[in-house]
Amino acid sequence: MSRGRVWKYGDGVNTDVIFPGKYTYSPMEPEEMATHALEDLDPGFTAGVKQGDVIVAGRNFGCGSSREQAAICLKYAGVRAVIAESFARIFYRNAINQGLPAIQCQEAVKALEAGDELEIDFAKGLILSGRGEFPFPPFPESVLKILAAGGLIPSLL
């Protein structure tokens, strides 16, 4: 179970606004990547985000580049999960491979607003909020193993 507040964004949030290309080839620790999270989408995000918060967004979240920092910077900024109407495929894989749950749930995206508090039950596949309960298909065993290990590389150790 995880509890946090909602940061809400629209459709087509791309990897350049999540983690700008100008930083992509600068060697950086994850904690520093986190200071650039959503820099070109919401310059107030890094100052306000708290551990356990959740991003809720529209269609095609994470479209664009294969840069894995897009997932890393969100995770280390404290984001517990991203809930979207749909995900771009490389971001989806990268998120799971970094231990950041990517949840596709249109009903939750429609209902939830910025600042809402919510809880996510990953085992049951359920988002609980003051605006209702929203089910999503629980992750398969193989994905849960990667998420529990904190990412693909730790899961191989």
Binding site: S66, R67, E68, A71, I90, R93, N94, N97, Q98, G151, L152, I153, L156
Partner: peptide, 8 residues
């Protein structure tokens, strides 16, 4: 694909 995956 991403970086972790290529490393794997």
């Amino acid at each position: 694909i991403g970086r972790s995956e290529l490393a794997s």
